[in-house]
Design a protein around this nucleic acid. Structure first.
Lengths: 214, 214
DNA sequence: TCCGGCATCGGCCGATCGGTTGATGCGGGG
DNA sequence: CCCCGCATCAACCGATCGGCCGATGCCGGA
């Protein structure tokens, strides 16, 4: 447990407040050095190349240059830096893409300081760190080996989805299709899982992306 | 008020039950003759050409051949028949399109018999008949002379919409954008109006249709 | 024959949504 | 200077949603 060379960091977040908070947090803790900051994915790539940090703390969901794309690019470049995703919500739809892209860990911003520190140390060593919520999501994703979204929808599910896209409520869909509201909800639950969507709005979006609708 | 020649009808609905119900209703009432039925928009066009009815009772939302398209085609052909839309819900997103396409009236299926009869008589004379709910919607649509959907979204509204399409909840959007949940709801209400959408799912669908998303 | 997908249904619950009303401040165009 | 669009916020409420449990029946492939 002796103090070795400090772990060098690059902080990537579009919110200055968050960047300052992280910088301060790591500045006051021993064993870390914040090399620099970036406010977007593209900027992160530049800074990473220039500063060569051990660990990159990266937010997803940034206006200019998505975090996932940046991670993928770092992986492609075989960058030495380990990427630790630091996001706000476990509901983030980019969770799986980020990990697929090569993120070493995935933490929620509300994680306690110590957890964050140990996560960074773990990431520096190449070990994977996941928030409990993320972890449980991952296992279920792994348990279903299919690509999380390529599962085909059943005819009935497509029918329900089409009505959803028109703004039809569950009750209306039920009457429209001569089935009960419970059945509509069942179809919805199933197609949420198949599409990897969190709610009806996201389901519609995914459906359009995949060409199922429109 | 003397009984003239009976009003001839064509019934268009994909549900046999509904067709039977309407047929029986008009068969037992004096002054009406049901010439035939159709189960889709395309079939309606054929039958209308062959039977030359005075009034067409048309459901929207049919699997094969949408009702709105059929109405538009009848209008284009300068068909003699008046189209009376008979739909199930006033929330139907096709309300305005149907009227624009040339529908003479728009009734809800739960209208009382007598209201239906007088509506058909009115339609036969070319008079417009609207359900109260539809009527109120129309005035608000007219009050806003712009095309009901071409209103551009403000930058903030697009931002909110983008997050909605990712399945983000209002509360999450609020934190993400550093605003209150109330403000998020305000933006949503506004963009629903601008897009002519009933809820977030429909808003996402419209946005994809218009190329605002995707 | 048994398993799995599909479609159907029920009940319960907390969380979320959408509508309503009303208000403030800012900036630009008439 | 006033009006309007935009962005911000509040409080309330009923309706709706989504998750969770479980259950039945049909059919087709292994």
């Amino acid at each position: 447990m002796t103090t070795e060379a400090p772990i060098s960091l690059l902080i990537v977040d579009d919110h200055p407040v968050v960047r300052d908070g992280l910088r301060g947090m790591f500045a006051s803790a021993p064993g870390f050095t914040v090399l620099g900051e970036a406010a977007s994915g593209v900027e992160a790539l530049e800074r990473a190349a220039a500063l060569d940090p051990d660990v990159i703390l990266m937010d997803l969901r940034m206006p200019a240059g998505g975090g996932v794309a940046a991670i993928a690019e770092l992986t492609r470049r075989r960058a030495r830096a380990k990427v630790l995703v630091l996001t706000t919500y476990d509901t983030d739809s980019d969770t799986l893409p980020a990990i697929e892209a090569g993120a070493t860990g995935y933490l929620l911003k509300d994680a306690p300081r110590d957890e964050l520190f140990s996560a960074v140390r773990a990431a520096a060593q190449g070990r994977t760190v996941l928030s409990p919520a993320i972890a449980s999501r991952l296992v279920s994703a792994v348990r279903a080996p299919r690509a999380p979204g390529n599962e085909p929808l059943s005819p009935r599910e497509r029918e329900v989805l089409g009505l959803v896209a028109k703004g039809t409520s569950n009750r209306e869909i039920a009457r429209e299709l001569f089935i009960s509201e419970a059945t509509v909800k069942t179809h919805l639950t199933h197609l949420y899982a198949k599409l990897g969507a969190k709610d009806r709005a996201a389901a519609v979006a995914v459906a359009y992306e995949r060409g199922i609708l429109g």
